[in-house]
Design a protein around this nucleic acid. Structure first.
Lengths: 197, 197
DNA sequence: CCTAGAACTGAATATCTATTCAGTATGGTA
DNA sequence: TACCATACTGAATAGATATTCAGTTCTAGG
């Protein structure tokens, strides 16, 4: 069996796990249920993952890699103003989560147990992501379009916080709006604040 | 045994549970550990709570009640400008979490399983809290100090999102800053945004 | 001091499930 | 075709722990 094929099966298991975990939670999902949905025997799971926990870690890694790669393309890609880059980052975040509700559920809900399970791992990846946002804020300060006294990392966390809450709200709400439709309002608020001019 | 006394013991169990769950997570905490820390027998826990899950629910209820009561005092209390009320709400949120790290851990991490365990319960309480924030935004719009085109509930969620991220960041970081020291910068960003005037 | 009922105890139970591993199937190669 | 390595299977295991309940201790009122 080629590496290609192996990667495919590994991916299938991860896909099955995303589906099950989004519906029943990490602790509510049995390895047997993941195997069954992937159409393989329980034992086979352990040929691809050392443990159930490693499956969760892998889901996180796979998704986070995508977030970071795409964000980096915006930040380090072809030159553009900071405001434009910020708008694209916001839009990216909401689009990626908005197009896969199961993944969004896992991100917004299941990964929050992470302080115990994935602490180091998850926060280091998120720090990487936050750093990309902070880089854009820094650029904005140098261009003079963002306030001089704003701390880039603090601003990045604020941006992330708002995006995170919008995503959680979307995940938990029954309404059928598109998550990415919140992109504009989020940016407007971030850029200009609540105060009347 | 008086009701008073009963409430005390119930509270002791909850206190013990907060401590254990903050350290080991909900699924990593055994009922035996909670009982042991509370200095009672395992079975006694079940005289006060129907199940382990009910303990988690009760921790949430008890804490959330405090948040809502204090927020309501700010919002409906003696008249003040919207900006001032908003600053006090932000400060309240960060202070309440900042003065009890164990409770903060549970709020920022453990309650996120809530989509499956506490979905209805927790979100309805949080909606109540969000509604109080939204009320202040609405007031600001009428006073003309906040932008006319901002949606109050959307703004409230944004405020909550930033506060939430600051709290999570604080909980996961080893640094020994006071959480409430973030209160000023958070308000400034919310009110005036990132853009240079 | 007695006693009934409330409060408490903690060993036993009943169930659940992650992981293992001895055996089976598959597919490419000579 | 025969062979071997790789991939897969799924029943059995081992360990964990929420919850119960029969028995014990406490306590307040008479």
């Amino acid at each position: 069996m080629t590496t290609q094929r192996k990667e495919t099966k590994r991916g299938q298991i991860l896909d099955a796990a995303v589906l099950e975990i989004a519906r029943h939670g990490y602790y509510g999902t049995t390895v047997a249920a993941i195997a069954s949905r992937a159409g393989i025997a329980d034992g086979t799971v352990y040929l691809y993952f050392k443990s159930k926990e490693e499956i969760l870690v892998s889901i996180f890694e796979r998704a986070m890699q995508r977030f970071i790669d795409e964000a980096r393309r915006i930040v380090d890609g072809k030159p553009a103003g900071a405001e434009s880059k910020l708008r694209r980052l916001v839009s990216l975040h909401l689009s990626l989560l908005g197009q896969d509700r199961d993944l969004a559920v896992i991100f917004q809900v299941e990964f929050r147990h992470t302080i115990h399970v994935l602490e180091l791992l998850s926060r280091s990846r998120i720090r990487e992501y936050l750093a990309l946002m902070a880089q854009v804020v820094e650029q904005g300060k140098q261009e003079g379009v963002f306030k001089a006294d704003v701390e880039p990392l603090f601003a990045a966390k604020s941006v992330f916080g708002i995006l995170d809450e919008m995503a959680t709200d979307w995940v938990l709400s029954k309404k059928n709006i598109r998550l990415s439709s919140r992109s504009g309002p989020v940016c407007d608020l971030l850029l200009d604040g609540l105060s009347a001019s």
